[in-house]
């Protein structure tokens, strides 16, 4: 059990480091570049299309391998999202997320990775993001 936990944490650490390196290398930790990508009707910067394209291409191969595996390499079962319904909640949430993404040029991954690049700005982003997440949870408890 303890061995499982350790190996799963190590897998997550390796994935996190690769992810953070990819974000920094691809320019996603530079908010101006992200906003340049979203500036489709202005001074468009297509760099992030290459980031997304590269990531989706590699991950699509992993999705081809996954069904042929009985279980993951270091854990017992695949824990994958099962929801299939397209709900108003999904669309409203994604829409709001896009507004925040466009406003500051930051999404969660680059915001966290940027803690070592621009500590104060990134810390404000991560802290307020956490507040937003807690707010949703509080409202859901009332409902």
């Amino acid at each position: 059990m303890r061995q499982r936990l350790t190996s799963e944490a190590l897998v997550a650490l390796v994935a996190g480091v690769l992810f953070g390196a990819g974000l920094a290398l691809g320019g996603m930790t530079d908010p101006a570049r992200v906003r340049g990508f979203l500036d489709l009707f202005g001074n468009w910067d297509p760099t992030l299309a290459f980031v997304m394209g590269g990531a989706v291409l590699v991950m699509a191969m992993a999705w081809l391998i996954q069904p042929r595996m009985i279980r993951p390499l270091f854990t017992d079962v695949f824990n994958l999202p099962k929801a299939r319904d397209i709900t108003p909640r999904l669309v409203i949430g994604a829409g709001l997320f896009g507004v925040g993404w466009g406003l500051a040029g930051l999404c969660p991954g680059p915001g966290i990775a940027a803690l070592v690049i621009e500590p104060l700005s990134a810390a404000v982003f991560v802290a307020t993001m956490l507040v937003g997440m807690v707010l949703v949870r509080l409202f859901e408890k009332d409902a």
Partner: peptide, 26 residues
């Protein structure tokens, strides 16, 4: 634009997601 750096970064992100999926099923 920095297409090559973008592509390299994207491949790393894809590898990270693949490690997570195939390594720990998440």
């Amino acid at each position: 634009a920095e297409p090559l750096a973008g592509l390299a970064g994207g491949i790393l992100i894809g590898l990270a997601a693949a490690v997570m999926l195939l390594g720990s099923g998440r």
